[in-house]
Design a binder for these strands. Structure first.
Lengths: 352, 352
DNA sequence: GCTGGCACTCGTCTTGATGGAGTGCTAATT
DNA sequence: AATTAGCACTCCATCAAGACGAGTGCCAGC
């Protein structure tokens, strides 16, 4: 009772910290004797047992069974991560590797994959990076190519360098010249404007100005509409090193592992989870069940959003068992996010 | 000795067949009593024991330990699949589903994924489909778009509808007009010709005719070369339902499973294996170690190449444990390959 | 408030016993 | 000569019992 106010004193916290650290490095439930030796506080195992009983009452640690040591709970990890953790600076060789691999001169089409690979290889867990997604997507260029019959290949470029392509079915057969003309018309009017804007403008043109337009322009507008309509922005991510997750004892249960990997293939849930991290900036952490996705119940996710020219465009992170070396992973994710953002910035590209 | 010539008589084969069938459906080593009841031959367990001893001598079956039944070896499965198997026709509901999902009107960009999904969902194993790869790739259209500084986005279309894009770095800064001119030049000369041909011709032009060409043409040729050089034909595949493989007892060993999934992510080995199936047409089967890839030691792979307009362009198949229902999987893979080939045929596209 | 001591709990590991499934061999049968 | 019945044997799976060790909770003393 009276101890309740004093429970989270310096000493208890110190002990919890050592316990979590010890458990993270060993993977074994931590007993009072081990803690007594590990912590700098000179306390006997008996005293520590009393403190641990308190920590258990508060739901910060938990005993797998009566005569095992204690293991941190999700709340225990949370408290540890939020207040007790002393982050370790990145090892300089890792830092060098990151800088080299994520330099601004790399091909932006590969750099996402590289980032994911670095995350997984250097942490020996799974790395994930969402594809960058600009808030405002600008139409850069559009092009039509006639295929067989009424099928037309539409190629359009957005945001300087993202190439999309779709096949649309038209109501009549167009000649190459007609298609060229249509593309020219659209490029001259809509190039440089945002896709949303373009979509709206197209709709308006179709409704209002039908009589004013010639057939070519009308066809162009109709085709563009078809193409953009299908353009449901496919958010996606690159995941690497999933196999690193096999063999963590926490995930040795085949049912769990299967659920986790199914979540990875379905993508949808993972995307939703990662999207939440877009809002906050800086490193964000989901421990165990905190994520709200059953498949991730025994995993932790350390994420950070990344930005290009001060606009948040994506999220990257590391997925591993709850028992992971947070003090190393957190700065690692942080730095990777910053470097990736910089590498994607087209303005900073250095000439050859 | 003298029995050696008579060993593979009708009766032994019949027994081997029943044994394999029984093992495939049960997953338990098959004993003489069970076999005695299962087979139509009216033989006592004792007789069957004698026959099985012979089969074991020939390496067709194998005892996990002295008092367990027999299990087919790879050679046993091989003999079964090659000579004993009675294929079951596809269930009509599966056939209908295949026809609906792989119709010629589907978007060719999705149809590969659909095929893979069908393979995995209907077999409850993993489905794999290589991306179609024409022997001769024709250049259809090329386009340059200037990005920042000396970076140029090259978009080119091959084989009617495959869109590629790369970013190249040029030695000088080009104006949009210059780029347009270069593209026009290339399109006028090389459109419709095979990529190999184009590559060679470009090289030749650079070597021979430098003095005859004006600067614009020269630039065009140089840029095209840069773009095509990087075009290492990325053969790739779509794999679905890997998670179905978790939970097969044969693959419950985490080490094996990890190796298998690592092979899936590395892709390279799998691609090489699948490439071998391109040569043969019709259904081809690798049982266990036959594939030569350690990761597949406990898996079987049932594949078939698929063709568009009589040209083999890809391979699809099903990956599962060696103990799989070959008699169902084989016709299934066969039909899927034929339907996929048909669905990809651009000529047969029906107008809307 | 901290500590040493002690009884107790629980999980793990080993051992041994039991039962069942299936075999190989041999002798009898067809 | 091929088939079968019978029998001894092997091996695995399962279970129970016991020893062991790690760790706890609690109490009494410092």
């Amino acid at each position: 009772m009276s101890s309740n106010t004093q429970v989270l004193n310096e000493r208890s916290l110190q002990l919890l910290k050592t316990l979590v650290e010890r458990y993270i490095s060993d993977g074994q439930p931590v007993g009072s004797r081990a803690l007594s030796k590990d912590s700098d506080l000179n306390l006997s195992p008996a005293t520590i047992r009393n403190v641990m009983a308190d920590l258990e009452d508060l739901g910060l640690v938990h005993s797998p069974h009566t005569s095992a040591g204690r293991v941190p709970t999700v709340s225990g990890y949370r408290l540890f991560v939020d207040s007790l953790l002393t982050v370790k600076p990145l090892e300089s060789k890792d830092l060098t590797l990151l800088h080299q691999s994520l330099s601004v001169n790399e091909d932006p089409n590969n750099v996402i994959g590289t980032a994911s690979r670095l995350l997984s290889e250097l942490t020996q867990m799974a790395g994930v990076v969402t594809l960058p997604k600009r808030e405002v997507v600008c139409l850069r260029h559009i092009e039509f190519l006639s295929l067989s019959h009424t099928r037309v290949l539409v190629i359009f470029v957005t945001n300087e360098q993202e190439v999309h392509n779709r096949i649309i079915h038209t109501s009549k057969i167009f000649s190459p010249a007609e298609l060229q003309q249509a593309a020219n018309y659209l490029n001259s009017i809509y190039s440089g404007r945002s896709l949303d804007e373009v979509r709206k403008a197209l709709l308006k043109e179709l409704q209002d100005d039908q009589e004013r337009m010639n057939q070519g322009m009308l066809d162009a507008v109709k085709m563009a509409q078809l193409a953009f309509d299908q353009d449901n922005k496919k958010d996606d991510y690159v995941l690497t090193g999933e196999t690193n997750l096999m063999g963590f004892s926490e995930l040795s249960d085949m049912e769990r592992l299967k659920n986790l990997f199914e979540a990875f293939s379905q993508k949808q849930g993972v995307i939703h989870l990662l999207d939440q991290c877009m809002k906050a900036d800086g490193v964000q952490i989901f421990i165990g069940e905190e994520s709200g996705y059953r498949a991730f119940d025994h995993c932790s996710l350390v994420t950070s959003s990344y930005s290009v020219s001060d606009e948040v465009v994506g999220v990257l992170g590391v997925i591993g068992p709850t028992r992971m070396a947070y003090e190393k992973i957190i700065p690692f994710v942080d730095v990777t996010a910053k470097l990736l953002g910089a590498a994607l910035n087209p303005k900073s590209t250095t000439p050859l």
